[in-house]
Design a protein around this nucleic acid. Structure first.
Length: 250
DNA sequence: GCAAAGATTTGCT
DNA sequence: GCAAATCTTTGCC
């Protein structure tokens, strides 16, 4: 076997690797991409170990015509920030919102389309304590926490239920240690330090598949105006305790 | 070069 | 329930 052939095989199962199981659906219409992301595993592998979450809430953003999308900027095309949105499906688009929180999107559709899905919440599956530690480090890095009472912040986070560790777009990135340095990363590459994997073929995943999908308008996009504020482009597993809140539909 | 606003979260009233 | 925190990006002068 040549080095190239070895590189095209999975490290652990030895089977030939075909196209990524999510690639086809992520390359389709953005609503289908959003539904494909529900139940998928978001996997973070770095110096603090392995962290895995089940995607339970996403929002679809449909390219430059969608006035709620960052792809609408750039009168004559793309801007420095939204450039990766115009790339192929499966690329990470990470941006800073409100000067404080990083948000993770998965680029979808075909190249040049610039549609993407915002990961709004995950249910922690593995690496709970590293997630909690990352949330704490993130909270303490903010001036507000330092000036008020870091002891209280610490105690609150220590008691925070597992399903609240990543129950919002800014909390997903905090729990998994995701920032803008990961912008442009290929989430469909099984060797990426941040990647997407299909729900495993197990009884646990069978339960996942029976969970109902709910939809609602997207949150926090009043600036876009109708019809964009009305489209039911937020998708979530209806029974999840990890949905974003308190503003979210719980 | 400058002003305005933002795909959020938290803590206090 | 409301407003502050915080800083990058964008559009316009």
């Amino acid at each position: 076997m040549s080095a190239v052939e070895r590189g095209s095989r999975r490290l652990n199962d030895g089977a030939a690797s075909g196209p990524h199981p999510l690639r086809s659906r992520l390359s389709g219409p953005v609503e289908e991409a959003a539904r494909a992301l529900l139940r998928a595993r978001l996997v973070r592998e770095d110096s603090s170990g392995l962290r895995v979450g089940r995607v339970v809430e996403v929002e679809a953003y449909d390219g430059p015509a969608d006035l709620a999308s960052h792809a609408r900027f750039g009168r004559h095309g793309r801007t420095a920030r939204n450039a990766v949105m115009f790339g192929p499906a499966g690329v990470a688009y990470v941006y800073l919102v409100y000067g404080m929180y990083d948000c993770l999107n998965v680029v979808s559709g075909i190249e040049g389309e610039a549609s993407a899905c915002l990961i709004r919440a995950i249910e922690p599956v593995h690496g709970i304590e590293p997630m909690r530690a990352a949330r704490l480090a993130n909270a303490l890095s903010r001036r507000r926490s330092r000036e008020t009472n870091s002891r209280l912040t610490e105690e609150r986070l220590a008691r925070l239920p597992v399903e609240r560790l990543a129950s919002g777009p800014g909390l997903v990135t905090a729990a998994l240690g995701i920032d803008r340095s990961l912008n442009g990363l290929d989430l469909l590459d099984p060797t990426s330090p941040l990647r997407l994997e299909p729900a495993p073929d197990s009884s646990e995943a069978a339960e996942d598949r029976s969970r109902e999908v709910g939809t609602s308008p997207r949150l926090g996009i009043d600036y876009a105006g109708p019809p964009w504020t009305e489209l039911p482009w937020r998708f979530y597993l209806a029974d999840s305790p990890a949905l974003s809140g308190p503003r979210g539909t719980r």
